[in-house]
Design a protein around this nucleic acid. Structure first.
Lengths: 199, 199, 199, 199
DNA sequence: GGCTAAGCGAGACGGTACGTCTTGTCTTTAG
DNA sequence: CTAAAGACAAGACGTACCGTCTCGCTTAGCC
């Protein structure tokens, strides 16, 4: 019954201004206070043009995030200077800096909240933005193991989560500051473990 | 002008049925679909009785969570069997089980989403529920260090986040299953670290 | 089931301050904007004290009116100076003045509106305040007929309404000014009629 | 800030069903018990559609009345059979019948009550419905005077009020029955006056 | 002169309706 | 013939009052 719109005829200008308006409004008043009407008004677009292409306000925000993150996707390959500790610190410092950035904080929190209620959004976000980064990190760790910089039986999958989980936890629950020094401590903790070294 | 209500005259019955109705409705239809009107109707209570004592729907849900968690608060002391690995596994398994429990999943996600938009709620949740658990774990690690089961320079604060961050990350982003075996791998990873052992 | 309260123990102070508060509030903000809560607050009285003695806001206003009108009730006997025209002019001028008085206008309109929706209030108002005045006027007309100042077949009942109906009509519908000159014209119109006199 | 709606885009269907629902509900349960929500529900209309075009419940009722009276407005020209008494009786009988009609009684009382609290509504009601009828009657009386059926100095303005005031007074205060015989007595009283005729 | 039953001030309660706001659809209009 | 503009049906929001219901606290008047 509902004829799906023809993507070929979609107005690029409208799409751009909708995504921009969404990002701007979210940063200004917070996601909860953003309305579809406000987005349409700011974008100079009819409401129907939004509803024609997105199923919900959350999906628009989500697209705005992905759109912004498109560049980042390309830079997913980790540096490999040969110095594992330095490379991991570089990654973690970047993660911590992204989370600490006030310019994107509200948007990041909003999209994190949003994906709790929409599993498919969660899936896409993870696939498009998070997974590449985690896999790149896993690759770097694998390479380190091959050259003997890691224990042969190191659990790489868990190691990646040990690196990314804590800053995310700290950011979401606001349990502590997010700084370079914190990133470095995490790397140190993951590399050395807690158990005492043999003498 | 706005006379604050007298807590001494608050109806315990109304409070109970509101919290119960909130929990039940959230589990049934999901937090986003819960309305204050529905809570009031389910609880057999006037809307004003909700608005008299809570500023928002989120605050009610939050109280319902805290109320449920009150018992848990008491059991914050970690087991100390002398076997550090076993004790940490017990804690992590409990955390993983709580997050994996379908009965509370929606409520937990809703409250996590809610505290992203309300810093004060976040603070209280952390103080009342999370911090005690994390500090109990830190205490257990400190004791382990004193008896030589940990490296003397182990970073206990980071270690706690290495334990709790990953399951939370996995749960929120749905990047993997939450099972006992996962808890055990985390404990193993944290204890041993990635670096190769001296022979 | 509901034990009726004991009038003997009724607080005269509370009754007085409730009626006064009602009159004052009605004059200030208009009857529609008066609430029982506001009356109670202004009177320094519990809401229940109002509901104990009156069934509704309208009944309170009504009592306030009657209370004020008690004095007027006594002066219902018309003057009888022997000059019918002058006597009727005196009555009509008083009626017109009462309706034109800005101090009581809002209250009078409110009670008139109120009795449209409550037939029993209407009955009591008419019995206590209007009927006495109309009957006194009818009596004066009867006396005039007996002394030959009126046609022997004059319809006294209708005559009374011809006198009181027009100013009331003009007041309620705001179709014209209410002044002494208007009262005199009415008396003249009623006395002479429209038909041409025999030469 | 508040953009006034564009009347050109107003839905005729919605307007009609709102007015109809208002009339029906008022007749059924009485004006005081009518709520805007009930009107919207009955009319199959969103509440906002009512608030977009009317400022209050009273204004809606008022429009419903005017809407109903629109036909009547056209028939304002009085009959002129040459027989003044008969013509006036016809008018008064119609007025009395309208007031006595149980089908419209509640609505008429409600709108009369409503205009007590809103002077502008009163003005419009008078202008649209009452004034035309009164002026038509005044015209008829003027014509009668020109042909010598009235005293040359008859006060026509007052005469009109002598005719319309009494039935309205009787209706509002419920002081007597409203029947044809009453209309005829009023006409007789107004035409002949009270004063004795010269022999 | 103490006891006790009622009225009292106060205000929380279960409700209802308010008038506003937002959603997602449908309709009109101007380019 | 498309898309902006925006009216529409629906319904949740948070507020204001309603009329009822406890609370302690006077305050009689009967023992």
């Amino acid at each position: 019954m509902a004829a799906p719109p023809d993507p070929a005829r979609r107005s690029a200008r409208a799409r751009r201004s909708i995504l921009d308006a969404t990002t701007a409004l979210t940063a200004e008043v917070g996601y909860a206070a953003v309305t579809v009407e406000a987005i349409a008004a700011r974008a100079g677009v009819g409401k129907q043009t939004i509803y024609r292409w997105w199923p919900s306000k959350g999906a628009v925000l989500f697209d705005a995030i992905l759109d912004r993150g498109s560049d980042a996707e390309r830079g997913t390959a980790l540096p490999d200077t040969g110095d594992l500790r330095a490379d991991l610190q570089a990654v973690l410092r970047a993660v911590v800096a992204e989370l600490a950035d006030p310019a994107t904080d509200r948007t990041n929190r909003a999209v994190t909240a949003e994906i709790q209620a929409d599993e498919s959004l969660a899936g896409e976000l993870v696939t498009r933005l998070l997974r590449p980064q985690m896999e790149a990190t896993a690759d770097r760790l694998d390479r380190a193991r091959q050259v003997g910089q890691l224990a042969p039986d190191a659990d790489v999958e868990v190691a990646v989560e040990l690196l990314f989980g804590p800053p995310f936890h700290r950011w979401l629950l606001r349990t502590g500051p997010l700084e370079d020094e914190y990133a470095d401590r995490l790397v140190a903790g993951v590399l050395s473990g807690l158990a005492p070294r043999a003498p």
